Simulated scan of single mutants.
Amino acid sequence: MSHREAGERLLQNAGTLAEKITEKQYRLQPDLMERFGPIGKIRTKEDSRYSLSYLAESVLVKSPSLFTHYISWLKVLLAGYRVSAEDLEVNLQLIKESLEEEFEHPYLEFLLEYLEMGIEATRQSESHRSFIHASLPYGLEAQAYVQHLLHNQRKEAFELLETELDAGASIRDLYRYIFQPAQYEIGRLWQQSEISVGQEHFCTAATQSFISRLYSRWLLQPNQGKRLVAACVGSEQHEIGLRMLTDVFEMEGWDTYYLGANVPNGSIVEAIGLHESDVVAISVTMTYHLHLAKDLIQRIRSHAETAHVKIMVGGYPFNIDKELWRAVGADGYAPGAEEAVAVAERLLIHPVSLDNMSAASESGKG
């Protein structure tokens, strides 16, 4: 029996377990109904299922840091809804109790090892530092950009971008030093309940529209005769990072085929073959979609016409665990668009093995 089997079994039973855990918590803490009402019980069930899914994925790929990072993130998010760290710890202890009832050894050992780390994470203090700092390149401009968006000032936000371009900034500078940290910062503000879901969506939509409006100002390199297919896995909706990555490849002279989100695996494999892709970029934001990335990679490898294609992965879970790309079967990983171009070029020039690809990724940074 393995970590993989334990994780897969937990994924299969997450829904049923979440129901049981929620009922237990509301019996143990009857004040929860008074504090949060019926909707609170529904959300407790949803959060329990997410926690179980994150735990399962972490065990599947043998990466406890994925689960502990999630619990630390969840603790901050729930605090904005008046759910205390103690409430969260009670929930995790009930998850432990339910796992002990439902799972036998050695499955249970794998799950409890990671769960205990998550419980400990509820007792740690969290950092709330901004992703934008005046000391960073274009830091002041990024701060102003976020403030314009938060105050519904789309016109002023776009004028700021045009001013920077006229002053000598490149589109890639805007992507790396304004758009990317701005998206992280907006996500942080939402997590801490400082802005609403509606504001978060508005800011993201505004940035996406600005990206489209800036196409006419691109500076393109000569065509390199190389092809990239880029897609998000499963039902991922966080696609703006992958879109910027695809744009940077296009600026470097690659032919790119951006598929975006909600594309079935079969269609992705078909597109790779149809466009005779050299490299595939797969984006994962939600940790509970990691198994979908692994499934997609296996499917790409299993088709004769796509088996040769080099596969890069990126996104939030891969930034937490820098070795995670190995677990899903990819050829490499890059933390951002600029690094991705370097890794892709290196993969095509030197078809490196999984044992030394990490060095290629690291050397592409900066």
Rank of each mutant, 00 (worst) to 15 (best):
S2C: 13
R4E: 06
R4S: 12
L11R: 11
T16W: 13
T16E: 15
A18C: 11
A18R: 09
E19L: 14
K20M: 14
T22D: 08
E23C: 06
K24Y: 14
Y26K: 03
Q29T: 03
P30V: 00
E34H: 07
P38K: 05
I42E: 05
I42Q: 07
R43H: 06
R43M: 11
E46Y: 10
Y50G: 04
Y50E: 06
S53R: 04
S53D: 06
S53C: 03
A56E: 01
L60W: 01
V61Y: 05
S65L: 07
L78F: 02
A79V: 03
V83N: 08
D87T: 06
D87Y: 05
L92W: 01
I95N: 00
K96I: 00
K96F: 01
F103R: 12
Y107T: 10
E109F: 10
F110P: 15
L112M: 11
G118S: 09
I119C: 09
Q124T: 14
E126W: 03
E126T: 15
S127W: 00
L136T: 13
Y138F: 15
L140I: 15
L140H: 10
E141D: 13
A144S: 12
H148E: 08
H148S: 07
H148N: 12
H151E: 07
Q153P: 05
A157T: 10
F158Q: 10
L160R: 05
L160C: 08
G168F: 02
I171Q: 03
I171D: 00
P181L: 10
P181V: 09
R188H: 11
V197H: 15
G198A: 15
Q199G: 08
A205C: 11
A205D: 04
A206P: 05
L214H: 09
R217V: 09
L219K: 15
L220T: 09
K226E: 02
R227E: 03
L228D: 06
C232K: 08
S235W: 04
Q237I: 14
E239Y: 07
I240R: 06
L242G: 01
M244T: 02
M244H: 00
L245A: 15
D247W: 04
V248P: 00
F249G: 06
M251P: 00
G253D: 02
Y257A: 04
Y258F: 13
L259R: 03
N262V: 09
P264I: 02
G266H: 02
G266N: 10
I268F: 02
I272H: 07
I272F: 06
V279K: 08
V280M: 04
V284H: 00
T285R: 00
H291R: 09
A293K: 01
D295M: 13
L296I: 11
L296W: 08
I300M: 10
A304H: 15
A304G: 11
H308D: 03
V309D: 01
M312E: 13
Y316S: 08
F318I: 11
L324S: 03
W325A: 03
A327M: 09
A327S: 11
A330M: 06
G336Y: 11
V341I: 14
A344Q: 12
L348V: 13
I349A: 15
D355W: 07
M357Q: 13
A359Q: 14
A359E: 14
G366S: 11
